[in-house]
Amino acid sequence: MKRIKRRYLALQLECEGLPTERELIDAIWAAVTKLYGEVGASLTGLTLIDFDLERKVAVVRVSLVALGMVRASLATVTSIGGREAAVLVLAVSGTLKALYANTR
């Protein structure tokens, strides 16, 4: 079976207050579903890996084939948990080690 290639994205949250992990991932899923529907969202393999509350930096994993879809969806996020917000992609990497090295 062919190995699934993945990419890790470091996301900077810009919002007032502190959203919970659940609110963040729900907002991302909602954006992906709104743009690509449930079938499209099911192809992304989106998973929250890490969420640094202090720096408001989250790390998510997505399937490489759906990277463009997820990046476009992340740019359309305008609220998280009912609060105005923006999600900026700080870095994209093939490994967590390289991602953390890039974002530190």
Partner: peptide
């Protein structure tokens, strides 16, 4: 709040 990074805008 609607401003995006250049690469996000390109995406």
């Amino acid at each position: 709040r609607f401003m995006r990074l250049p690469r996000d805008m390109a995406s």
